[in-house]
């Protein structure tokens, strides 16, 4: 049966929410790193002149959208990869033997991962507001949230692609170090891309997070390389492609 079953998606979504609520320390852990980045880098370099950051904007304001993107990148990839823990701990079999379609399982995981990720990003955004960050218009939070959702879906899909091709949890660190960190540094989350060498700039054009963070900057602080709508369009394509490839790999992977 190929149908999308709402109840199955709801169950898998609810599972993520409950797990998040049961593990408050884990939630704190995932929030702390981006907040440290924001606090120490943002505050420490507040008065420095960084090429590419408009004079008068301040590095903290420039950095905030980047840290939002970073937080979403890490927790979304993690959410997609968590299939390997479900396999390791056996719970995947319980899901696989239930009378629900595979596409519902994939969608449930994406919606669940997206919710927890978005929640974390909104907490970081709120704290950045308390620290003095101001978006250029409150209405611009709406496209910003849409961008966050698209970044999240893109990287949950990417996590699923990797998880479906891994037999155990061994490859996790490898993916973190050789995929996630390069994606983060290439995206221009920390520094304006214009100070990067040409090859790095070219590579960064292949990184979906680049468009996510550039889009967030376009929406929130009005300083971006590409217009907001173009970023939204490219990122939507990335999200769709990544979900489709992720679902395809998940369907064909051996569950047990």
């Amino acid at each position: 049966m190929k149908a999308i079953q709402g109840i199955a998606i709801y169950v898998l979504w609810m599972r993520e929410i409950k797990r998040l609520l049961h593990a408050k320390s884990r939630l704190m852990g995932t929030l702390l790193m981006p907040l440290f980045f924001l606090a120490f880098l943002g505050m420490g370099l507040k008065r420095s002149n960084i090429p590419g950051v408009p004079a008068g904007m301040g590095y903290f304001v420039f950095l905030t959208p980047g840290i939002l993107g970073m937080s979403i990148l890490f927790s979304s990839t993690f959410a997609g990869l968590s299939v390997i823990w479900d396999r390791e701990f056996g719970f995947l079999k319980e899901i696989m033997v239930a009378p629900i379609s595979r596409i519902s399982i994939v969608l449930g995981r994406i919606v669940g991962g997206m919710t927890t990720t978005l929640f974390q990003a909104l907490v970081i955004l709120t704290i950045s507001l308390l620290m003095g960050f101001r978006p250029r218009g409150w209405i611009m939070l709406l496209p910003a949230i849409l961008l966050m959702i698209l970044i999240s879906v893109t990287f949950i899909g990417m996590g699923l692609i990797f998880a479906s091709n891994m037999r155990d949890t061994q490859g996790f660190n490898l993916i973190m170090n050789f995929v996630v960190f390069p994606l983060f540094f290439l995206s221009g989350a920390m520094f304006p891309l214009e100070s990067y060498p040409k090859w790095a700039k070219t590579l960064s054009r292949l990184d979906p997070l680049t468009y996510g963070i550039d889009g967030l900057r376009a929406a929130l602080i009005g300083k971006s390389e590409l217009p907001l709508l173009l970023n939204l369009g490219i990122l939507s394509g990335c999200a769709l492609l990544s979900v489709m490839i992720g679902a395809w790999f998940f369907e064909k992977s051996e569950y047990i």
């Binding site: 599972r15 797990r19 701990f89 056996g90 719970f91 079999k93 319980e94 033997v97 239930a98 009378p99």
Partner: peptide
């Protein structure tokens, strides 16, 4: 799948729930 129940050899529970 609706007509069967199964208890796997390895535990298949979500221990965080």
């Amino acid at each position: 799948r609706h007509r069967i129940g199964i208890v796997f050899q390895e535990p298949a529970l979500d221990v965080r729930l």
